[in-house]
Nucleic acid binder design. Structure first.
Lengths: 135, 135
DNA sequence: TCACAAAACGTAATGAATACGATAAAATGT
DNA sequence: ACATTTTATCGTATTCATTACGTTTTGTGA
């Protein structure tokens, strides 16, 4: 997803356009990997000195709710990345740099037969390690 | 894993026996599901009034390190459960009560072919939802 | 039973995330 | 263009889980 697509989604949901939001989106559009709220704050600081935590977190959660970002818990800290909306898949995640690689394998179909009487709402399949550059 | 097996593991690693440790272990031996540090603290409080956070967390991490417990992050809070050591498997986890059900399916073999140049260190496959009792 | 290493206590500190009243800014209708 | 309304942001305080640490207590092996 690119910045324009994301801004369109925002507008469709009736949310306003601001310079900060565009900058947040372009941060994630450029970084094709999982980043933390702190990473984003450090990126924003130079241009918007004194930007508040509220703004960072509110927008991160808003963007996730409307489907612009996706998130995962990595050692106790929430990480965010631009959502890849084209099809269902999972991620390899580099422990060092947060880089992600798409995994096509998804075992949910076979798993469903194992969970007949359970109400499945969600699932998480992540592989962790080091990417070629970080090895 | 039962309490005696766990105590044996502790002794093998040269750690000491204490009443608190046995109680912590019997808590997890009884509860066949993911529990938080707070859950454990509430269980210990009546018998050991004034037990400290240090004791709780130190033992939880120790037990995980020697392979007595396994842990996962669930909405920003670490959850622990007795490790089922017999064979590799994953879990369905109930969002309400933390109950777990073993899943035999593990897609790592096929995934490895997708990640030739990546150093795989770990993986997580969890299914979330409601167990029959909580629906 | 004595000495020493490990465990626990009590409490303070850290760090991520959330909350909130006040202010500012963007969209909308006239 | 202007006023109105709605949303966004600021500044800061608070919550909550977790970690840290100096001191005291307690197992354990000689």
């Amino acid at each position: 997803m690119n910045v324009d697509e994301a801004l369109t989604i925002l507008k469709e949901h009736g949310y306003k356009y601001t310079g900060k939001r565009e900058d947040i989106l372009s941060f994630f559009a450029t970084e094709d990997r999982y980043r933390t709220a702190k990473d984003l704050l450090q990126y924003m600081e130079p241009n918007y000195s004194g930007i508040s935590f509220d703004t960072i977190y509110r927008n991160l959660h808003l963007f996730r709710e409307v489907g612009i970002l996706e998130s995962t818990d990595l050692n106790g800290e929430k990480h965010f990345r631009m959502k890849c909306a084209h099809h269902h898949h999972h991620h390899f995640i580099c422990k060092d740099c947060g880089l992600t690689k798409e995994i096509e394998t998804c075992p949910m179909e076979t798993v469903k037969t194992e969970l007949q009487s359970f109400a499945i709402e969600d699932h998480k399949f992540e592989i962790y390690g080091l990417c070629p550059a970080c090895q």
